[in-house]
């Protein structure tokens, strides 16, 4: 598996798109830091961007790489290699190269603005960790969609839909539910609803760390008591971890059953 990972990774870091992605983050962070002139505020603004954009990029790169390397995958399948190592290797290659773009792209500007001297270093690290988790989760989801759909257009459409659903539509439905049933105690519903969407989970995790949960009123307080402490943070990370592991396991399972 490590060999396949190595080759996919090299193949990707040689591609133009990885650099465009890296440059985008470099530019974005420098501009935010320049405009805010405050690392803490820049982290909050960045969070809003990352929570939507990282899943989108993970989705698009994942599905594109899957279809792009399909013929080559068939060549690999005829070699004495285990199926799961081929697919997991390629998947990890994509996710790791994307995560690396994210880490370097955000890291360089923040470090040069004196991140290590500031108090927000842990918030920043959490932002990076959550961003990497989202990359792994959404790349895995789109890889699964690729494995399930022979038709490129369909596969591409489905993965964009999944992203759109989790990034936008889910929140819409969620908010409507909260509005309609506003007279009832909804704390549990809200907690459960958050768990089922990795983007929301990531958002809550970062919001709580940044100590602006007071803005969320009573629900914010419930969240604070649930996710806020050290054990809550671990729990939320654990759920994010499950969100990453389940689709990865599904890649392995689907790949072992598929005809090529």
């Amino acid at each position: 598996m490590l060999k396949i990972l190595k080759y996919s990774f090299y193949d990707l870091i040689k591609s133009r798109w990885s650099y465009i992605y890296l440059l985008f983050y470099l530019l974005l962070s420098f501009v935010l830091l320049f405009l805010n002139n405050d690392i803490g505020k820049a982290v909050i603004t960045l969070m809003n961007v990352i929570i939507i954009l990282v899943p989108l990029i993970g989705t698009i790169f994942g599905i594109m790489y899957y279809y792009d390397s399909k013929e080559f995958t068939e060549l690999l399948l005829a070699l004495p290699l285990k199926r799961s190592s081929i697919f997991l290797g390629q998947y990890l290659g994509v996710s790791l190269s994307l995560s690396m773009s994210l880490i370097i792209g955000l890291g360089i500007p923040f470090i040069s603005y004196g991140l290590f001297q500031s108090a927000v270093i842990f918030d920043f690290i959490q932002l990076i960790v959550v961003g990497s988790f989202l990359t792994f989760i959404f790349t895995a989801l789109s890889y699964n969609i690729g494995l399930m759909n022979e038709n490129k257009i369909k596969g591409f459409g489905f993965s964009i839909l999944v992203w759109l659903f989790l990034a936008v539509i889910y929140d819409g439905i969620f908010l409507s539910v909260l509005m309609i049933f506003g007279d009832y105690p909804l704390e549990t519903v809200t907690l459960v609803g958050t768990i089922f969407n990795p983007i929301d989970l990531a958002r809550i995790l970062i919001l709580l760390k940044l100590d602006i949960s007071a803005l969320l009123g009573y629900t914010g307080a419930v969240f604070k008591s649930f996710f806020g402490g050290a054990s809550g943070s671990f729990l939320a990370m654990g759920i994010l971890f499950i969100w990453a592991v389940l689709p990865i396991w599904l890649i392995k399972y689907k790949a072992s059953k598929k005809n090529f």
């Binding site: 193949d11 591609s15 390397s69 013929e71 080559f72 060549l75």
Partner: peptide
């Protein structure tokens, strides 16, 4: 094995 259609990674 020689596959019918040979498609290799383009970047290498």
């Amino acid at each position: 094995y020689l596959p019918q259609i040979a498609n290799f990674p383009n970047n290498i």
